[in-house]
Design a protein around this nucleic acid. Structure first.
Lengths: 120, 120
DNA sequence: TCGAAATCTTCGAACTCTTGCAAACATTAA
DNA sequence: TTAATGTTTGCAAGAGTTCGAAGATTTCGA
């Protein structure tokens, strides 16, 4: 199989992996520091099993890693730079007519770029 | 609805849109210059209707635009920079154990970065 | 002009994959 | 043992993909 085909498939895997609002928010939460599952579920207002399944997927693709401490499972990004890459994708929705105002995008970009503990 | 949720959804739309090997290769082909549908189908070795459907999807999300000339439909990227953003995603598959060798990734990166007319 | 060929799009039906939810399971702590 | 924390499983609903066939438009030759 030609190189280009292989790489296109691998790239599409990455995109598929990230192409879910819950997983994007998980990555956003983890962009600065590790966090345990329950806290993530609380912050994102999602049921526990769902968070766990998403994390299992991210883990299977080595986008996150797990650290266990007692009964807590802490997750963190293996490559924190991926958060910056994701937010760079905002450049490509800015021009579209969909339901996102430029100011919403601007504030989102600031959220992702800002230091921790400032969530809106 | 909170801004963060909206933006996460919009971002996931973008990722979903790109998360297909055919569409990634289409974007790759279009990264430098416009091209008509048949030529794309030939180069990527795909059936015509399939190419057309993928392009319709990209068009619906304004990632590509159409220019008609006679019976030819020429497509081009509305934001050529998106190709560079996509290829930057290669950074995040390099460390994984999947079936892609580092050299394959390196050559893919060169392919996407190189001037036109050099396809392997 | 008429009809055939070329180019591209769209439709509808199968197929697959993902998602969401509830229930059950596993492990650790008190 | 009981509670707390996560994970896994099984299944139904939904979304995305693919294909063949049919439709639309333009060009070109008879």
């Amino acid at each position: 199989m030609p190189t280009r085909l292989i790489v296109a498939k691998e790239l599409s895997e990455i995109f598929k992996l990230i192409a879910h609002p819950d997983r994007i928010r998980l990555i956003e939460e983890l962009r600065k520091e590790e966090c345990d599952v329950n806290t993530l579920a609380d912050r994102l207002d999602l049921p526990g099993p769902r968070v766990s399944q998403h994390l299992a997927l991210l883990r299977a693709h080595r986008l996150v890693e797990e650290r266990r401490d007692g009964r807590h499972h802490f997750y963190h990004l293996t490559q924190p730079e991926i958060a910056q890459w994701i937010v760079a994708g905002l450049d490509f929705i800015e021009g579209r007519l969909s339901g996102v105002s430029p100011s919403a995008i601007r504030s989102a970009r600031e959220l992702w770029s800002a230091p921790t503990g400032d969530e809106a």
